[in-house]
Design a protein around this nucleic acid. Structure first.
Lengths: 253, 253
DNA sequence: CGTGGGTTTGATACTTATCAACTTAGGTGG
DNA sequence: CCACCTAAGTTGATAAGTATCAAACCCACG
């Protein structure tokens, strides 16, 4: 269980006063989907109160850009629900998705003025945005906050490197299987049953993620379907009765 | 100029005492190539003294493994000279280089027991190794140290994502040009003249970095040479009279 | 009931991999 | 010092995989 450090310590000693400490936390935060697991968990009640005065929850419809590549970076966000795709584009329009982020991930590049990547809502999402300046200040005097963000950065780096192996060395078939497997594992962290899920990306997005064309993605999906590894309904909903077969098709040992 | 915070502050006020403060710093560190720019710059003299009792400078010959993929991670290292390649391998032997590190980079994955990647000396290198436990403890009570490492993690993440675009969307020609351009920029941070440099990797390594075969790398090098964009001597030494042409060949606008 | 975005399928072209032969550079020992 | 040896690199012919171009399909939606 991940809660505010301060209240966690006290709560364990004086459980009957837990509600009092929770009441110190802004109401919007108490019920927030991202508080457990998100970066806010490292902030003190007073910091949370200060921050919450400047945060804004907002919905972004799928396909809308949250931040553009090379754009000025004035805010960070926590993803409360949905999936965000991070992409890079070349001058001639060729595009590569370089990462996907899921709730309760933290979005934004600390210590840099402008974004190196474009962030776009893959599906309808909800985020909690906060001014960059305030977080940057809190990072400076809350080591736990920097640590939390650092942990996520390291996780993203591990994922990026895994994906480099996929991009550089796997076949189209393995790439598509790797993508499906990755989505199955990430899309619904709570659900124990990973065998059925909705794809958060169109075929075009999947192609941009895998360094393939739409047609090749489609053909490989068809092949996985014909081989009985997956079933597809309405183009978006995938069922995979045997995850182990999918893993093997993905080239993971 | 990047020096110990404490001595920097004092030195600027009492410059005549600078040598005294320097004398507090272990001799091995004072002359260390990595102290400026490396992570040690954030440590206090007393921390440096403690750390230096456990550090060990060592040379590793090119081709030797520094740490294996999935291996237990007991030490961190600073690269003092040379180039290290980080790679991932699939069960069937397919390999992808996922990053290169240059002096004075910090090597090791904080907060994790085992390495997700293999690290191998690309050329003869010199490193300063230190026990993981000591650094982990110092990270916990020296926020500046975690910040410094965090900055490098972010840099590596940016680089990894840049490379994903190269792997996923560039042609063989653009990949090879991108590689040469990247090496030209990184290999000798001090030198102002980036037009002439030695490749730290064999053709096989370059192929593993670019997701290509040796033959394709060789053919594209030949083509760049025929086009007059580069000259090659002894297979390893490259001269590029016009960096702008190389940049364009790399597909960077 | 037509329209259009997203998707699938097919025919063909092109890029890169594979296999094989050859060349070059660097190191070793006679 | 030269001949030999080996690893690294180049070049060529062919095969395989994926992209490209084109057409059809399918559904959701107006």
């Amino acid at each position: 269980m991940q809660v505010i450090q301060f209240s966690q310590a006290r709560a364990s000693m004086e459980p009957q006063r837990k509600d009092i400490h929770n009441s110190e936390i802004p109401a919007v935060c108490v019920s927030c989907e991202a508080r457990h697991g998100g970066i806010c968990g490292t902030l003190s009640p007073s910091q949370l109160t200060e921050l919450s005065r400047h945060t804004k929850r907002r919905k972004v419809t799928g396909g809308s850009e949250v931040i553009g590549q090379g754009e000025q970076l004035n805010a960070y966000s926590n993803i409360l629900s949905g999936v965000v795709k991070l992409s890079k584009m070349m001058a001639d329009g060729r595009q590569q998705i370089v990462g996907l982020q899921f709730a309760p991930d933290f979005m934004g590049r600390p210590f840099l003025r402008e974004s190196q990547v474009a962030a776009e809502a893959a599906v309808d999402i909800e985020v909690c945005s906060m001014p960059k300046a305030i977080i940057d200040r809190m990072i400076a005097d809350t080591p736990e906050l920097e640590h939390k963000i650092h942990e996520q950065t390291l996780k993203e780096l591990d994922e990026a490197r895994d994906w480099m192996l996929t991009l550089g060395r796997k076949t189209a078939q393995e790439k598509v299987a790797s993508f499906l497997h990755m989505i199955a594992m990430h899309i619904d962290p709570e659900s124990a049953d990973k065998r059925s899920f909705d794809l958060p990306l169109t075929r075009a997005d999947i192609a941009d993620f895998l360094g393939l064309t739409i047609e090749t993605v489609s053909r490989q999906m068809t092949k996985l379907r014909r081989d009985g590894i997956i079933r597809i309904e309405n183009n978006r909903h995938v069922t995979c009765p045997d995850m182990e077969r999918l893993r093997r098709a993905a080239g993971n040992d």
